[in-house]
């Protein structure tokens, strides 16, 4: 092939690629413009009026919180049990879901010699379904049967966690080094022993890192589910917001607690994750 032919071919490919990019950009722009137009029409309050009112609510609750003075901190203290409940929902859901995820991940990894191989496919589909089910639906359904309580939210979040972490964990498993497993197999180790001594030590740091990230997400999810009747800080928020004017200091206190705890968990989890990733190398 002559140089010229190569050049024209490359130019043609480049042209095609740019055409695709342009088409993509035009499509995204069209979606955005028409979408916002449609959304604005469907919304009960328009964009412009909304923008003017945007700071009304935050400033209202800040003002009320300011007026409360020092007692604002007492209000915050009063809501600590609600915060603990939300954190407990997230914590229990992370542990239950995470444990389930480990089991699912080992059964759903293609490289670990799970027999028969069809188990891998089935477990993967199960994880897909667990992930796809919106937490809200499971929570609402269980609240209907069990009554208003933190447990429905815990179960809902745990199911989603099992699916989401299971997928990530199985990806970690599939990247694990096969040599230790083969070595153990040659010593006559059973499947469980091979997993425990050959795979688990390799994947555990990554598991923990994903687990921390998930815990943070679950705290947010538990707070939201509280709003539909699962208890904790979300439930308190619905109560104070439902009261409208007058409960601004309480709302502000709840916002403050939620933001603070998310900030602390965010920092803590990124610190631990950094430690896990860097701490592994020296060994």
């Amino acid at each position: 092939m002559s140089l010229y032919a190569i050049q024209t071919e490359i130019m043609a490919m480049e042209k095609k690629r740019r055409l695709y990019s342009m088409a993509g950009i035009v499509l995204i722009a069209a979606v955005l413009i028409s979408g916002y137009g449609l959304a604005n029409d469907l919304n009960s309050g328009g964009f412009l009026t909304g923008m003017q009112q945007f700071f009304d609510y935050p400033s209202e609750i800040v003002k009320e919180a300011w007026a409360a003075g020092f007692s604002f901190f007492l209000v915050m203290g009063r809501f600590v049990p609600a915060l603990v409940e939300t954190l407990n929902i997230a914590g229990a859901a992370s542990i239950v879901g995470g444990t389930l995820a480990v089991v699912l991940a080992f059964l759903g990894s293609a490289n670990l010699g799970v027999k028969p191989p069809v188990v891998v496919t089935i477990v993967r589909r199960i994880m897909d379904i667990m992930r796809a089910f919106p937490e809200l639906i499971i929570a609402l359904f269980l609240i209907f049967i069990l009554g208003s309580s933190p447990v429905p939210a815990m179960i809902a979040v745990a199911i989603h966690t099992a699916g989401a972490l299971g997928k990530l964990f199985s990806e970690v498993n599939e990247n694990a080094d096969a040599d230790p497993v083969e070595g153990l197999a040659s010593c006559g180790a059973t499947w469980l022993q091979r997993m425990r001594y050959g795979v688990l030590p390799q994947v555990l740091p990554n598991y923990l890192s994903y687990f921390m990230l998930r815990f943070e997400i679950n705290v947010r999810a538990s707070a939201i589910l509280g709003f539909v009747g699962a208890g904790g800080i979300g439930m308190e928020l619905r109560r104070t917001i439902g009261w409208g004017k007058g409960a601004g200091d309480e709302t502000a206190a709840l916002f403050m607690l939620l933001i603070l705890s998310i900030f602390v968990i965010d920092q803590l989890s990124s610190f631990i994750r950094r430690r896990l990733v860097t701490g592994r190398d020296p060994e």
């Binding site: 916002y36 449609l38 959304a39 604005n40 469907l42 919304n43 009960s44 309050g45 328009g46 964009f47 909304g50 923008m51 009112q53 945007f54 009304d56 609510y57 935050p58 947010r220 707070a223 939201i224 709003f227 979300g234 928020l237 917001i241 916002f255 939620l258 933001i259």
Partner: peptide, 17 residues
């Protein structure tokens, strides 16, 4: 959660919110 509550107050019901 908090962003939604603030936007629901300002913009009302709807997809824009």
């Amino acid at each position: 959660l908090i962003w939604s509550l603030i936007f629901i107050r300002a913009f009302g019901l709807g997809p824009l919110t």
